[in-house]
């Protein structure tokens, strides 16, 4: 069973209205996730990674969603709310970035967990719900769960709150778990614990995980496969080792070399020139990364960049990767003069 596709996104396009026009924040992406697999979506703010996750959950407020989102073979894009509500929190659930704001401040933690049981396990008695809720707190590693159960979110630390959110997310044993920057707001030791927890739960439940993050260290630790997003598109997708050892797309390579790495040298970090274009000003024609590597000749780019399969399962967009090199000193200075 583990080979069947749990989630298959085909040509997803999510657009938001600004003024009179729609602008695609997610522009024609295709992805798939299997059971017991962690797919990481990586990119900087504005890359469309969170918009993709929100599209899967259909949580966007006012967005136009086109394309297919197949969940266990069934298209759930633009499902009517009543049907979508049966899936959310049940077969697909989500872990959020900021555990401080993602919990209702006026509701006891226990009641927030119970809510997801009330919604999807209507045959449970209130006693069973409480017992199961406490059991869930145990599962996510919360000490003295009986006490925490009746406490309010503001009485708990950030790490504890994130565990509550995870308990809510796994209450109905979802097949697909979407984690949107689950550790960004947490301290590094807590981050390690939360990542361990997500990994364990994934193994126990045999769920697929979509992990959205901008932290390449987290990706290296967690992901089986990685999709790198830039300006609403996937620019590279590969299994995690390939991506870190043999990254091809200029953006992936630039990102990797801009992280202060663990070896901690005094070398200068690589800086990607220019800025991430805003949604309204995304380049829609040609290679979207072109402006960020101005020292490369225009001829290296494709006119209509496609994803090319360079080895099984390793896709790279545009042909510019074949010629890409980091800028020489003089090229860099020249480019800076332009901006």
């Amino acid at each position: 069973m583990s080979d069947t596709l749990l989630l298959e996104i085909k040509n997803l396009k999510t657009s938001f209205r600004i003024g009179e026009e729609y602008y695609a924040a997610v522009d024609n992406i295709s992805l798939d996730v299997r059971h017991n697999e962690v797919l990481a979506l990586v990119g900087e703010s504005g890359s469309g990674k969170s918009a993709t996750a929100f599209s899967i959950m259909n949580l966007h407020n006012r967005a136009k969603i086109e394309g297919q989102i197949l969940f266990n073979g069934r298209d759930i894009a633009n499902l009517p709310p009543s049907k979508m509500n049966k899936l959310r929190g049940n077969e697909i659930s989500m872990i959020f970035q900021d555990p401080l704001t993602a919990l209702n401040p006026l509701m006891e933690c226990g009641r927030q967990i119970e809510e997801v049981l009330i919604l999807h396990k209507s045959n449970m008695s209130s006693k069973q719900r409480k017992a199961y809720g406490i059991d869930l707190l145990n599962q996510v590693g919360i000490p003295r769960p009986e006490r925490i159960y009746d406490q309010f979110p503001h009485e708990l630390s950030g790490g504890m709150r994130q565990r509550i959110i995870i308990a809510i997310a796994i209450a109905n044993k979802p097949e697909l778990l979407i984690a949107d920057e689950p550790t960004t707001a947490l301290d590094v030791t807590i981050q390690a614990q939360i990542l361990d927890l997500i990994r364990e739960l994934k193994n126990d439940l045999n769920s697929g995980v979509v992990l959205i993050t901008h932290d390449l260290g987290v990706v290296a630790e967690m992901a089986d496969r990685v999709a790198v997003m830039y300006a609403g598109q996937i620019v590279e997708i590969a299994d995690v080792e390939t991506l870190f050892i043999q990254p091809l797309h200029p953006y992936t390579r630039s990102l990797l070399s801009s992280v202060p790495n663990a070896e901690g040298t005094d070398d200068k970090l690589h800086v990607i020139q220019g800025i991430v274009p805003s949604l309204k000003h995304l380049p829609r024609e040609g290679c979207r990364f072109k402006d960020r590597i101005p020292w490369m000749d225009d001829s290296v780019h494709e006119e209509h960049p496609e994803l090319h399969e360079v080895s099984p399962g390793h896709f790279v967009r545009c042909t510019c990767y074949q010629h890409f090199h980091f800028p020489e000193q003089n090229e860099e200075e020249q480019a800076h003069g332009i901006t």
Partner: peptide, 19 residues
Amino acid sequence: KRLVAAIPDIDPRRRQEHQ
């Protein structure tokens, strides 16, 4: 030691070892 060990390792090949 614990803080240093908690830093995610950027090399996925050392994942098991690091964990």
